[in-house]
């Protein structure tokens, strides 16, 4: 499933929704949470996750803070008000897309 191109366009929605539900999270935690929720069927690649998080940070959809944990510094991402609005928009878009594909695949009349 992780190799499927289908999930790539949905990654931003997955991450935003996760941050909305779980609150502040760090990169590794996001990968583990997705694996757990999908029972290991979806594996978010690090090479895709971090560029996305940095893009969301630059666009003001998320804000960051750090905590010293054990011997290291951990960076957390948290949704901003702007990010919360974006999450709602992205979920609506994804739902509309799923419905459309469903109609096409099931060949139901639109």
């Amino acid at each position: 499933m992780s190799q499927s191109p289908l999930y790539k366009g949905s990654l931003i929605t997955i991450v935003l929704q996760l941050l909305q539900k779980e609150g502040a999270m760090y990169g590794y935690e996001i990968t583990q949470k997705v694996q757990k929720l999908t029972k290991g069927k979806l594996d978010i690649k690090e090479g895709a996750l971090y560029p996305l998080l940095h893009k969301l940070e630059a666009s003001g959809h998320v804000t960051v803070f750090v905590k010293k944990v054990d011997n290291r510094v951990r960076k957390y991402y948290e949704l901003t008000a702007h990010g919360t609005q974006e999450t709602a928009t992205k979920i609506q878009e994804l739902q509309a897309y799923i419905q459309m594909i469903n109609r096409l695949v099931n060949l139901k009349p639109i």
């Binding site: 690649k45 690090e46 971090y50 560029p51 940095h54 893009k55 630059a58 666009s59």
Partner: peptide, 22 residues
Amino acid sequence: KKFGVFGFTEIIDKRQAAMHKR
């Protein structure tokens, strides 16, 4: 190995692009 064949390269490039935008 989980970072793929290009290692950190893509993350570095995209981080730079995001910083430029900022």
